[in-house]
Design a protein around this nucleic acid. Structure first.
Lengths: 338, 338
DNA sequence: CTGAAAGCGCTTACAG
DNA sequence: CTGAAAGCGCTTACAG
C-alpha cells in the first residue's frame, strides 16, 4: 500500500538486519531456513521491491543494455529491437533505446553515466573518437564503422548486393539501375560497391541513382528512371522501402512491373511479401541479428573489465539470402532501348 | 582517459570540495566566478561526466520515462516511440522501452524500481490491480482500460470507425464487412462497435469477421470473404496491415480492388500511401500522439507527489480523420449478390 | 560563497 | 548463519 517500502522496513518487520534481507533475496541458501521464511513473509506483507537504482549504484552495474539507432521510426529496426529486448529480458536485463542523433554531448554522457553497461550501436556515422571514448562493452549491429574499436555483427552487404545482381543477370537483364542509400552510409556504400563490381564482372551496363532508403526516394528515382533514354530493365534498390516506392511510382506512371521493368529491394521487411507485386529482395534475418547482438553484448558485459573489446570469439556469421517473388522477371522481349 | 572519473577527482584537481563541484555543475551562479572557472577547467581536464545512477538515487528521481507496449515490432508503434523520445530528449529525459508482455513479476518491478519516474502505457490488457499498484505517474496512450486510474490520450476509435462506415455508405455500398482485431482488445472492441452502430443507423447489412490486426489475418479474412454467398462490397479492416493483407489476398484470388470490392484500413501507416492501390484509411496522428503523451507525463512528473493522477487539466483531444485514396470506390454496377 | 557531514537504498567484506 | 559498518557517487540542508 505504502508508496515506498525500503529494505529497512522489511528488516524491521522480520526482526533481522538489512544485510540478512539482502542475502535472503539475492542468495537464499546463505541464510537459515527459518530466517529466510520470516524475511519472505515480511517481503510479501510489505510488497517490497528492490530499488534497482540503489542496487545498481552499489554494485556498479546497471543491468541494462542501451540500443542506439539513427532513426527509431524506421521499420527496419523494430523487429531488431524486439529481438534484443526478448533476449535481454530473459537474462534479467532491461533495455534502453535512444536515438543516436540526439547530439554529441548527450551522447557522450550516455556512454558512461552508470545507467547502462553495454551498448548495441546501429549507427556507423558517429564520431569514432566519441564512440571509442565510451568505456563500456560495445557491439556494432547492421551498420558499422571500421574506426570503432568493437566487434561487428551483420550480413555481408557487398556479397548480398552481388546476389541481387546475379539474380537480375540470370533472368536475362543486360542493363541495371541501382538506387543507392545516403552518400555517407556504410550500408549504402557497400551495397553499391557490390552492385557495381558484380555488374561489371557479368558485363552489364550499370547506372547508379542517389537515394536515402525511403519510399519517397524510390518514387523520385522511378521518375528519373522513366526519363532516361535507355532505360535499364532491371532495378536493384538499396532498401525495400525504396523499392516499394519505385514500383508504386512506376505503376502510377503506367509501367508494368515486372513486365516492363524488374525491381528488387533489400531487407525483406514484413510488407515485402504482401505488396502487389510481391517484392523480390534480399532477406536480412533481423530477429537473428538482434538476438546475436544481445547475446554478444551480454557475454561482453559478463567478462572481466579488462577484456579487450575485440578479444572475444567471433560470432556466427549472419547470412543474407535471395528471396525470389513477383517483382522480377525476364526483361521484355522487345527491348525498350534503341 | 581513465575509465571512471568521480566528482572527488575533479574536486581534488580544482582544489575545492565535492559540494562545490556539484554546485558549479548544477547551478553555476551559486558559485563564485573564479571557483567556477577552476572547476570547469578540472572537469574538462578529467573528462568528468556525472554518474547519473548516483545522482538519481540521491535525488530520488530517474529522469527517465518508461514506455510499455505490447509488441515492439509492430509498425504502428515505431513513430510513436520516436516522437516520445524526441520530446523527452529535449527536456533531458531518457527513454526506456519495454515489452509489456514480459511477465507479471518483472512488470511489477518496473513500476517502482527507481529507474523510471513516469510511464507511458500502450497496453490496455494488463491487470488493473498491477497497473494501479505502480506508484508512478502514468499516461495511457492509444489503448486504454477504464480500470486504470490514469489519464488517457488517443483518438475516439468509435467515432473514427463511424467515419469509415460513412465513407463506404456514401459511396453507395449497402453491405459491409468488418475485419476486427483481437477479441479482448479495447481498440478492436470500440472500432467494431462504431462499425456496427453506424452501419445500423445507415441501414446497411453488416458482418464481422475475427482478426488480429496482422497482414495474415487480413489475408485469411479475404479468403473467408470470398467464400461468402452474398459478398459485402465494402470492407473495413481494423488496421492498415490487416487491410493490406486483405487486398493482397483478394488480388491473388483474382478480384479487382476497388472494382469489385472496396477495402479500407485504420491507422494510416507509411505504406498506406504507396500501396497498390493506395489505401483509403483513418489517419491516426502518431507523432502528435507520442508528443502529447510525452508532454503529459512530463507535466505529471514535475507535479508534486501528491498530485492525483486524474487531477491534471485534460489534454487537447487528438483527432482522427478519413483519408480517401484508391482502394475504395462505388460498388460494382451489377450486384454480386443475388 | 564554500565546506563538512549526512544520506539516497542498497550490498558486501569483515567479524563473530 | 547473522549483524555492524563501510561505501557505491552523488546532492543538499546546515553552518559559517
Amino acid at each position: 500500500m505504502s508508496a515506498r517500502v525500503r529494505i529497512k522496513d522489511v528488516a524491521t518487520l522480520a526482526g533481522v538486519s538489512t544485510a540478512t534481507v539482502s542475502r535472503a533475496l539475492s542468495s537464499p541458501d546463505t541464510v537459515g531456513p527459518a530466517t529466510r521464511d520470516k524475511v519472505m513473509e515480511a517481503v510479501k506483507a510489505t510488497g517490497y521491491r528492490i530499488n534497482a537504482a540503489a542496487r545498481d549504484l552499489r554494485q556498479r552495474r546497471a543491468r541494462s543494455i542501451l540500443i542506439l539507432a539513427p532513426n527509431l521510426s524506421n521499420t527496419f529496426f523494430s523487429r531488431i529491437f524486439a529481438a534484443i529486448q526478448e533476449e535481454a529480458s530473459a537474462v534479467g536485463l532491461t533495455v534502453q533505446i535512444s536515438d543516436s542523433r540526439i547530439g554529441r554531448d548527450r551522447l557522450l554522457s550516455l556512454g558512461y553515466d552508470g545507467r547502462a553497461d553495454g551498448i548495441v550501436l546501429l549507427d556507423g556515422s558517429l564520431d569514432p573518437e566519441l564512440v571509442n571514448g565510451w568505456h563500456l562493452p560495445l557491439v556494432q549491429l547492421s551498420e558499422w564503422n571500421d574506426a570503432y574499436d568493437a566487434p561487428r555483427l551483420g550480413i555481408d552487404n557487398r556479397a548480398a548486393a552481388g546476389l541481387a545482381v546475379d539474380h537480375l543477370a540470370d533472368l536475362g537483364h543486360r542493363a541495371l539501375l541501382h538506387v543507392s542509400g545516403p552518400e555517407d552510409n556504410v550500408l549504402a556504400l557497400t551495397r553499391r560497391e557490390g552492385f557495381l563490381d558484380t555488374a561489371e564482372s557479368r558485363d552489364l551496363a550499370r547506372i547508379v541513382l542517389p537515394g536515402d532508403f525511403t519510399l519517397e526516394a524510390g518514387a523520385e528515382a522511378a521518375r528519373r528512371w522513366s526519363r532516361l533514354r535507355d532505360r535499364p530493365t532491371g532495378v536493384f534498390c538499396a532498401s525495400d522501402e525504396c523499392a516499394l516506392g519505385f514500383i508504386s511510382e512506376c505503376v502510377h506512371m503506367g509501367f508494368d512491373v515486372p513486365g516492363e521493368v524488374s525491381v528488387m529491394g533489400f531487407d525483406d521487411i514484413d510488407f515485402a511479401d504482401r505488396f502487389l507485386p510481391s517484392l523480390t529482395t534480399i532477406h536480412q534475418p533481423r530477429k537473428e541479428m538482434g538476438r546475436a547482438a544481445a547475446r554478444r553484448i551480454t557475454q561482453m558485459m559478463q567478462g572481466s573489465e579488462g577484456t579487450l573489446r575485440r578479444s572475444l570469439p567471433p560470432a556466427t556469421p549472419i547470412a543474407a539470402r535471395l528471396v525470389k517473388r513477383s517483382s522480377t522477371a525476364a526483361p521484355p522481349a522487345a527491348p525498350s532501348a534503341g
